[in-house]
Nucleic acid binder design. Structure first.
Lengths: 202, 202
DNA sequence: ACGTTTCGGATACTATCGGTATCTGTAACG
DNA sequence: CGTTACAGATACCGATAGTATCCGAAACGT
């Protein structure tokens, strides 16, 4: 019995804190994406979420950890989107089309890329951010390399470089193009698809 | 006579201010590249240059304009380096080799790329930075497109996309890879060359 | 059921930084 | 040689990340 009441109790308490945390991430995500990392203050985030700054520091070690949580929530969706785009069973060209269509409204809005690179700059002076971002970067690169390996194998393409190199190159281009698009919205998303086809051609 | 003395006078005065300005740019450049834009305070820059913050605001409208001047001084060298790498009269492969060799010690140190993208994030909330960076971006893209056009024409290559698209793609990849290298130094500069060759193959 | 403890979150405070307003000393000039 | 203009210094303001402290309600033992 006592264990039940204990569970209910901690659950209730932990649940309410988890809600607070999720709400903060949700609001911070929108604010970070819209205004950028530096321009978003913790106080504004907290107030917009209906809390005070103390709630932020009660749930995160600071602004950096909050942003890491925001990026993780974004990455989840991004990874799902990419995998879905290439999950179809058409030929390579139609998959790239599907990917481009998704990217046009997903990555196409370069808000997240801009946040990504802005936050990457923080890594220079923060060992914590450097470590965490490097970890996620390795995971993402490995996943893309695996995707490249699978797609080229199925399409019978011999890449003129290793799958890892292609993964790093494509990821880098995606990030760079997104960053450039945040400066100049006239840059076409199709550039990425064109480069992709150029690299992945037989 | 009077015109001479006037000239000497204004010269002397203007000269000393120009020296101050150059010294500030020089010191700011090193500090921005080493510590990043956000982590470099105007006070530290001014003191390191042997002046006070007032000197900065006497020579620049603010931190943003100072950073634009720093970036311009960097861009000058970058553009010269790229053009030199492709100025040789060997075949395409050897030119790409020359470019890679230069990039290994020029772009290879990703400090400037990191500064570039960090500062690009500022453009979101600063119309001045947005305008100036967009202007420079258009110029650089046009120059690269011209270079691509020349190189492909000489090598008899038919690009599977427009020279402008290739220019944007390659520039974006360079920026993105540089930003990633600032997080993970193990990323090889050769990735860029490999991607370049893949795009520029006959 | 009640007193005690725990802890999520609020409040108050500090340090730092970009920017502005004002002042000063010196070079330019009549 | 007295006056003016301007480069640069100094003092100040507002905002913001982070810290220290405090409060009230939920959790728990008795």
């Amino acid at each position: 019995m006592s264990s039940v009441t204990v569970d209910q109790a901690t659950q209730s308490r932990a649940q309410r804190q988890a809600q607070t945390r999720e709400k903060l991430i949700e609001v911070a995500r929108e604010m970070f994406l819209t205004d950028g990392y530096a321009a978003s203050s913790l106080d504004k985030v907290a107030v917009a979420a209906g809390f005070s700054k103390g709630a932020v520091y009660s749930n995160f070690s600071g602004k950096e950890e909050l942003c890491m949580a925001v990026l993780d929530s974004i990455h989840e969706e991004q990874i799902e989107g990419v995998l879905n785009a290439f999950a179809g069973d058409g030929d390579l060209d139609s998959r790239i089309d599907a990917f481009t269509a998704w990217a046009r409204e997903g990555i196409g809005q370069p808000r997240w890329t801009a946040l990504e690179v802005e936050f990457a700059a923080v890594a220079r002076r923060s060992p914590y951010v450097a470590t965490e971002l490097a970890k996620r970067h390795r995971e993402v690169t490995a996943a893309i390399a695996e995707l490249v390996r699978r797609v080229t194998a199925e399409a019978g393409i011999a890449l003129p470089m290793s799958a890892e190199q292609a993964a790093v190159g494509l990821l880098g281009m995606g990030i760079g193009l997104g960053a450039m698009r945040s400066l100049d919205a006239s840059i076409d998303v199709d550039v990425f698809a064109a480069m992709m086809r150029a690299v992945l051609r037989p």
